[in-house]
Design a binder for these strands. Structure first.
Lengths: 222, 222
DNA sequence: TCTAGATTCAGTGTCATATTTGATCCGAAC
DNA sequence: GTTCGGATCAAATATGACACTGAATCTAGA
């Protein structure tokens, strides 16, 4: 964390800025699951009092990224394999519906951007970068759904699970497999084949779920 | 609001107690959409400083019940007809999936409790009471899904929309219709007919959506 | 009528302080 | 050696008084 002592008063509430910064650190794996989040240390780091820190932590807790234990402090949330499986099941249910909504409204712009994301993801070796592009690829497919709430919900589910998907990179050849699956999804999307898109998307998420829950189960045995 | 000056220090953080109390007031319609939520007034009412009030408001904002405008204060969230429609669409997608998960594991206890909820809802004239029982009825059908996260998500969606469904009681014969639909759903559930259950549930939620969005559109024209 | 500055309102956060909670440690008793 | 109770510790939780900030509204002048 290289924030230094920034002025947090000039662009919105301090609590929001702190929350954004902590969220980023958690999502990039700089703060691992189980890490203690001490109010006074964070307050010192951001050169603020502990009040906006508490507010930021509450916000992150509501998002599921942080677990608050009253009077004992906050930690970066862990995720059990059962929870992971379930989150991905929910994602699957909503994302397949979102893509059905979006597909009839897909245009050349959407296709070009999804293709660009796919090309970009093939050129990067950086895990954090790849995860960002992965999200952008998926989001682009759903963009024309006309359902902001659903997309927001998908994003919040994504936030809870993507930092764990990150570990698949070192534990399996996840990236190669995911790229192939993305290619197939985009090909079906391009010709407007809704049944194929949803089926491929479902397989993609289900396979991710299988790999991730296996990995988390191994973690829990250690 | 008849809370008086209660001691909020004896069972968990003050912010949690305030949040719970405000949430209840919002859900029961005691605080209408658009109502100003002033930190100082709430702090006075609960005999606390403004700090736990701010934390409670942030928590409720994260739940979608409250909208915070920086430097301008918080209001009880409004809901546009488009948002209502979408929330119910999402609910429909998840609840039909939840009931599919639950149905193979339904037992006599679940059936008895769902039946009891239905009977109880037929005996009450109180809107708040009916809404609670309505939730209990639905929740009971999903209980055996073995998916705590999904059920939690359904509940949070419920929280965002049920206070608006309340107004259907005075604006249409919603209750009678909903009771009939509940009866049909339970009958199909009882014989384990998953296709019929999901289809009836989908119709039930879709019909609710239709009525509610019409009503909200009328509100917005005034 | 429009614009700029003043005023108002309520939020945002600090500070020094006190209190509370839960975990850990330590000594005494068995 | 084990158990139990009290003391200690670390960190969270919140107070009350105060200062500052931002956005909306009001007022006066051009």
């Amino acid at each position: 964390m290289d924030n230094g002592n920034i002025s947090v008063r000039t662009s919105g509430p301090a609590a929001d800025k702190i929350g954004t910064s902590l969220r980023r650190a958690i999502l990039r794996g700089e703060m691992q699951a189980g890490t203690r989040l001490r109010q006074d240390a964070i307050a010192q780091q951001f050169a603020v009092s502990h009040i906006p820190v508490r507010e930021a932590l509450r916000q992150l807790a509501a998002e599921g990224l942080v677990t608050i234990r009253p009077n004992r402090g906050a930690i970066v949330s862990r995720l059990s394999s059962a929870e992971a499986r379930e989150l991905l099941e929910i994602r699957c249910a909503i994302e397949t519906q979102a893509v059905r909504w979006a597909l009839p409204h897909a245009d050349a712009d959407v296709l070009a951007r999804a293709e660009a994301a796919l090309m970009e993801s093939e050129c990067t070796e950086d895990v954090a970068r790849w995860m960002e592009i992965n999200w952008r690829f998926h989001f682009t497919l759903y963009e024309r759904a006309g359902r902001p709430r659903a997309l927001s919900l998908i994003e919040s589910l994504d936030l809870q699970i993507d930092r764990f998907i990150r570990v698949l990179f070192t534990a399996s050849d996840y990236r190669k497999q995911a790229q192939e699956e993305h290619r197939a999804i985009l090909a079906a999307y391009r010709v407007g084949n809704a049944a194929a898109v949803t089926s491929l998307l479902e397989q993609h998420i289900t396979e991710t779920s299988r790999l991730l829950t296996e990995l988390l189960e191994r973690y829990q045995d250690e």
